[in-house]
């Protein structure tokens, strides 16, 4: 008598995307629970943390937002290595508005979000036709070019940057601003990508010629997706500027490009929740490992490799599957 494990998808209607899902409290809870987890953790537990861990949480949320922005682009097949472009542009727009015209963060952040998104979209518009690695190369190079441009021409404060900018009223305010942004981006993007519009976007990644032959202008859709992703990136830049009271060349640093990528790979791409989860694992992990001193990067790298080898699909995809399945042992002859 041998036994084997049987995996069965939960057959309850809660997995349907329709209104029929809302037939009982049990099924509503089943649907609501995973969605409530990030909201409760983010908004509820943050005041309980020590100021140091609140700071860590802020930087985690920044990277999570950049990872979500990266994930939006990958949905349309745009591989980006340049989240720092979005961060830097947003940072400098908010910084300049505050430094030269003394605008309050209440205005600089929204203007930098939309304006930064538009500017990045326009900058990348000529290369939007490129695919895969070619698009990635351009996104990698652009922030480096901006870096040297600022250094060479001494515009926007040159190497010194723009200092003495208006800070947030308090750390908790800053925390709630970034968390609100994170939750809006997470649930907003998930909603967009699951709509018919999102179907087109994913279709472009899957099979762009089929979308073209369906009478849709794929470059227009790619530009829209780029705008959405870049706006979120620019928002984090504008936020970071007011948090540090400084806008400068570090905004174009490679960290802002690589970290979101790692978070998305660890967490699982294409779901937005995955990259966010990835950021919430990697950034605190990097803080914990700080105690190890110079060996930190070694262990950090080791963790990354283990994650990627053990769960190549990403943690979120794994959790999602487990949540929607149940297992039992059955006897086989």
């Amino acid at each position: 008598m041998k036994r084997r494990k049987e995996r069965i998808d939960r057959g309850i209607k809660a997995r349907s995307e329709d209104i029929f899902a809302l037939t009982s409290y049990r099924e509503m809870l089943y649907l609501l629970f995973p969605r409530a987890v990030p909201v409760v953790i983010l908004l509820g537990l943050t005041p309980l943390l020590s100021p140091y861990w609140q700071e860590v949480l802020i930087s985690t949320a920044v990277y999570a937002l950049l990872a979500i922005s990266w994930d939006m682009l990958i949905c349309a097949g745009l591989v980006s290595l340049g989240q720092s472009l979005f961060y830097g542009i947003g940072s400098y727009i908010a910084g300049a508005l505050n430094y030269y015209w003394h605008w309050s963060p209440l205005f600089t952040i929204p203007v930098a979000t939309v304006g930064g998104g538009l500017l990045c979209t326009i900058l990348l518009l000529p290369v939007l036709r490129l695919r895969g690695i070619y698009f990635a190369m351009v996104t990698l190079v652009l922030p480096l070019m901006f870096l040297r441009l600022v250094e060479a021409t001494r515009i926007l404060g040159g190497t010194e940057g723009l200092t003495g900018l208006t800070p947030f009223p308090g750390q908790l305010t800053a925390l709630y601003v970034i968390q609100l942004g994170l939750l809006c981006a997470l649930f907003g993007f998930r909603r967009i990508i699951n709509s018919d519009y999102g179907l087109i976007v994913r279709g472009i990644n899957d099979n762009d010629r089929a979308v073209m032959s369906a009478g849709l202008n794929i470059h227009w859709y790619k530009a829209q997706v780029l705008f959405l992703g870049a706006s979120v990136g620019a928002f984090t830049g504008a936020f970071g500027t007011h948090l540090d009271m400084f806008a400068g060349m570090p905004g174009f640093a490679l960290d802002y490009s690589i970290m979101p990528l790692a978070a998305a790979v660890v967490g699982g791409t294409g779901t937005f929740a995955g990259p966010m989860l990835g950021a919430f694992i990697l950034v605190p992990l990097s803080e914990i490992l700080r105690a190890l001193g110079a060996l930190r990067i070694v262990f950090y790298g080791l963790f990354l490799v283990i994650f990627v080898v053990a769960l190549p699909e990403g943690i979120f995809h794994y959790l999602q599957r487990k949540y929607h399945q149940f297992e039992r042992w059955v006897e086989v002859e």
Binding site: I200, G203, N207, A214, G215, L216
Partner: peptide, 21 residues
Amino acid sequence: RPFYQLPAYKNLVVPLYSPRV
């Protein structure tokens, strides 16, 4: 050239979304 990951009927949502339709 179908969208392999989508259910068959969802494949048709793409052309049905087009400006012509």
